Amino acid sequence: MEYQKIINAIYDEVKELKDEGSIADYIPELAKVNANKFGIALLDNEQNVYKIGDAQENFSIQSISKVISTAIIFSKIGNELWKRVGFEPSGNSFNSLVQLEYENGIPRNPFINAGALVIADLMLEHFENPKEYFLNFVRELSNNDSIQYNENVAQSEKENGYRNTALVNFIKSFDNIKNEPNDVLDFYFHQCSIEMNCIDLAKLFQVFANNGVISKEKTIFLTTSQCKRMNALMQMCGFYDQAGEFTFKVGLPGKSGVGGGVVAIFPNNYTVAVWSPKLNKKGNSYYGLETLERLTTITEASIF
């Protein structure tokens, strides 16, 4: 497959679209990003990297990080995880409080904010220094020791995170948060602030395209069954209340973040990451989704 030729053509075509999205200005630090940035990186199963545009410029991966923290806890405690958080699509916006009241403080899935806060609580339970562990693990999977938290972004999210503060306290009222809410929020805001580029992100997610095996070390991070379930979660819940449309148009497991990043996995074939900061009304990168739809259409290959 001539991936470089394919992503070059897609890049040129998508750049001609009128992008009516808007940047995530409710986090002031993210509002400072150049809205016209656009990069694509694809990593195949032979470790070849194909890239174009701003694929080597760092950005805040935001909610994409939720997949990694969820996978860490899943690898640690197995199916006990599902007693604290569900695995169903939410059908509501990523920061909704509505379902928690009806479902007794058990978030619908780990990728909405409520679910990610429960995962953050579990990170605090199982690791002495969860922020250090998480960062080192991300560096290991991405093979890049220079990856860092962006403290300015983390602080910006803290100063404006009223809804997340409400969520974590509401969940604690149901006894589904065990640690101090401020400690849970601190990990969560740092997790979301982590910065990397499209190439790093494609490498980070290769473990999910490789049946749970970390390619560089040939070590098993997730069992085949666990990896299948993580990919299923991304398929059903990775794009919030646009997950159905993403499945319909793209047909790959994936995850988005309000920093404009999108990553998708074609098991045993490739991982692909796109960055374009302008978001559609559902909070997903407009160019990112357009890019991935074209990729699976042109290659005539998806998981379906």
Results as ranks from 00 to 15, higher is better:
303 I>S: 00
208 F>G: 02
62 Q>R: 01
112 I>Q: 08
102 Y>I: 09
146 S>I: 11
136 N>A: 06
166 A>F: 08
61 I>L: 11
187 F>S: 05
234 M>W: 05
142 S>N: 02
159 E>M: 08
157 E>D: 08
41 A>T: 11
34 N>V: 09
235 Q>W: 07
64 I>A: 10
1 M>K: 12
73 I>H: 05
60 S>Q: 07
138 V>F: 05
270 Y>V: 06
7 I>A: 12
254 G>W: 02
150 N>K: 08
251 G>F: 03
152 N>Y: 13
219 T>P: 07
198 C>F: 04
81 L>N: 11
198 C>P: 08
295 L>V: 05
156 S>L: 07
73 I>T: 06
191 Q>C: 12
263 V>Q: 02
166 A>M: 15
264 A>R: 04
66 K>I: 05
119 I>Q: 07
297 T>A: 10
29 E>T: 12
26 Y>I: 13
57 E>N: 14
78 G>N: 11
40 I>E: 06
254 G>E: 04
35 A>V: 14
3 Y>H: 14
193 S>N: 05
54 D>E: 12
111 F>N: 00
28 P>W: 13
281 K>D: 15
199 I>S: 03
183 D>K: 15
300 E>W: 01
247 T>K: 05
141 L>G: 11
251 G>L: 07
195 E>F: 08
103 E>N: 15
65 S>D: 02
155 Q>M: 13
116 A>F: 00
40 I>H: 08
259 G>K: 06
54 D>W: 10
187 F>M: 11
124 L>R: 12
203 K>G: 09
296 T>K: 01
57 E>Y: 11
126 H>I: 04
40 I>F: 13
280 N>Y: 03
218 K>D: 15
202 A>E: 05
255 K>G: 03
190 H>D: 13
112 I>Y: 05
26 Y>S: 12
234 M>Y: 07
148 Q>S: 14
235 Q>G: 15
148 Q>Y: 08
18 K>A: 09
146 S>L: 09
165 T>M: 14
240 Y>N: 10
217 E>G: 02
121 D>Y: 07
118 V>W: 04
236 M>Y: 14
303 I>V: 15
144 N>W: 08
71 A>H: 07
237 C>N: 06
199 I>K: 04
301 A>W: 04
284 N>E: 00
22 S>Y: 12
91 G>L: 01
157 E>W: 05
47 Q>C: 10
247 T>A: 15
113 N>M: 04
45 N>V: 02
256 S>I: 01
58 N>C: 06
147 I>T: 03
168 V>P: 11
240 Y>M: 08
81 L>Q: 05
207 V>T: 08
203 K>Y: 13
294 R>Q: 15
28 P>S: 10
1 M>G: 14
44 D>F: 03
227 C>V: 02
171 I>N: 11
294 R>F: 05
48 N>E: 14
273 A>G: 09
114 A>K: 05
256 S>E: 02
123 M>N: 03
290 E>W: 13
104 N>D: 12
284 N>I: 13
213 V>L: 12
260 G>I: 04
83 K>M: 03
237 C>G: 07
71 A>E: 08
85 V>K: 03
184 V>D: 04
300 E>Y: 04
186 D>H: 11
226 Q>A: 14
194 I>G: 02
283 G>D: 06
82 W>I: 06
201 L>C: 14
178 K>N: 14
2 E>D: 15
94 F>Y: 15
100 L>I: 10
42 L>G: 05
155 Q>L: 14
280 N>I: 07
303 I>R: 00
80 E>V: 04
249 K>H: 11
255 K>L: 01
224 T>W: 00
